[in-house]
């Protein structure tokens, strides 16, 4: 994708290598990622949850894409891995819901995990697991949108 295209008039340069941005993102991104996970898990006891945390985790990918270039990032993530992660998130959420039904409860009635399998505080862990999988779905979808919109600059009719 980075090869110089013959027509330079319609070429879109939306990546500028900047040591300041790279250094900043290198330092900030682990904290933002941790904050996203915190919002996801601590959403049970404070404002937040899977949707908000997932978006914050996705902003880490956006930051990395802006700092180090979107094409290298896409190769690093793996194009099909992203779709796989997205599908796994939905499947895992469904599995928890159907799993509680299989244990004899209602859909997402986490209490049966505690009574049937003997895991204490299963309701709280169940909610946190669901939040995590929501976060996985949201984060991978936003990253996917980011990649797909960026890919649009390479093909299609450019004026």
């Amino acid at each position: 994708m980075s090869e110089s295209s013959p027509e330079t008039i319609g070429e879109v340069r939306n990546y500028v290598e900047s040591p300041i941005i790279m250094a900043t993102v290198r330092i900030v991104s682990p904290f933002v990622f941790t904050f996203g996970l915190f919002i996801m898990f601590h959403g049970a006891d404070s404002p937040g949850g899977g949707f908000q945390g997932g978006v914050i985790v996705a902003t880490v990918m956006l930051m990395l894409g802006i700092a180090f270039g979107i094409d290298p990032l896409r190769e690093w993530v793996g194009e099909s891995a992203l779709v796989a992660i997205l599908s796994v998130g939905v499947a895992a959420f469904l599995a928890i819901g159907v799993g509680t039904v299989a244990l004899g409860g209602g859909f997402l009635e986490y209490h049966v995990i505690e009574t049937e399998l003997g895991i204490y505080h299963a309701t709280k862990y169940g909610i946190e697991a669901v939040e995590l999988f929501i976060g996985v779905i949201v984060a991978s979808t936003i990253t996917g949108l980011f990649f797909a919109i960026d890919a649009g600059k390479n093909d299609g009719d450019s004026e």
């Binding site: 959403g43 049970a44 006891d45 404070s46 986490y110 309701t123 709280k124």
Partner: peptide, 13 residues
């Protein structure tokens, strides 16, 4: 449901 945030309790449980 053992969570303190009622919004999350409604949302996820």
């Amino acid at each position: 449901v053992e969570v303190k945030n009622a919004v999350t309790a409604v949302l996820a449980a």
